[in-house]
Nucleic acid binder design. Sequence first.
DNA 1: CAGCTGTCTTGACGTCTGTCTAAGCAGAGA
DNA 2: TCTCTGCTTAGACAGACGTCAAGACAGCTG
Lengths: 127, 127
Amino acid sequence: MSKQQAPLLLVDLNADAPCCPPLAQRRVPAETAAVLAPAFKALGDPVRLQLMSMIASAEGGEACVCDLTPAFDLTGPTISHHLKTLREAGLVDAERRGTWVYYRARPGILRQLAGLLSVEPAPSSQA
Amino acid sequence: MSKQQAPLLLVDLNADAPCCPPLAQRRVPAETAAVLAPAFKALGDPVRLQLMSMIASAEGGEACVCDLTPAFDLTGPTISHHLKTLREAGLVDAERRGTWVYYRARPGILRQLAGLLSVEPAPSSQA
DNA sequence: CAGCTGTCTTGACGTCTGTCTAAGCAGAGA
DNA sequence: TCTCTGCTTAGACAGACGTCAAGACAGCTG
């Protein structure tokens, strides 16, 4: 597969800045929904949600597949398939280093998703 | 019983308070993932993401099916099916009032999902 | 009561998803 | 070079999902 072309209509998944007002504040346009829904979909599986968490909370911000696989009662290819889904959703990045492959979370899109779901539009309260 | 040491095994989707530390802060347990993943899955469809936004951002906090349906190129039953999915995921509530049915967002679970995805929890470590 | 309107349920159908086994590719080490 | 380990890809299959058409149900209006 060649490198995917940026299919981003309104949302730049690579940006670190929040892109959209909260769900509850303004109606999400169809284009934005089409771009962000796959990310939610990718998190819509318990295995992938745990994988995402294990990667994002790992020491040094990255996790080796060799550490992820034994945490589940699933075969290696199945874990690899889920990681590919997370990768294609833009939620993680993969890098091969020697024999092992390391995955790293992309905080930008996580922030965007969280911002979209946030109910408190302007947390002006004291921190 | 206030929350003490075993908070994360079961998640109360009806609670208004945040339930879980962010994804990136602590590894999500399998039980929590099993409970929250369906909510993300429900948001993983562009139509449902827009429906959710239309309901949550509607005047008075509720939206009539008669207003939701014509916004899409889909048949009534299909919209109804998506609304049922959102309802079963705990994201919205439905209420029949006379001829029409009104849907209302549940901010509690939205807050929980947003909290789970939040990347900047509180940089000031407390312990 | 009869008729009409609005919404939900049922049943069906094609597609997508999650999982596996088997095979292929990339590095490290002897 | 050959071999071993780690990860991904390919192919297959059961089950779930998204969609629609048809019918059922609830409530309003004569």
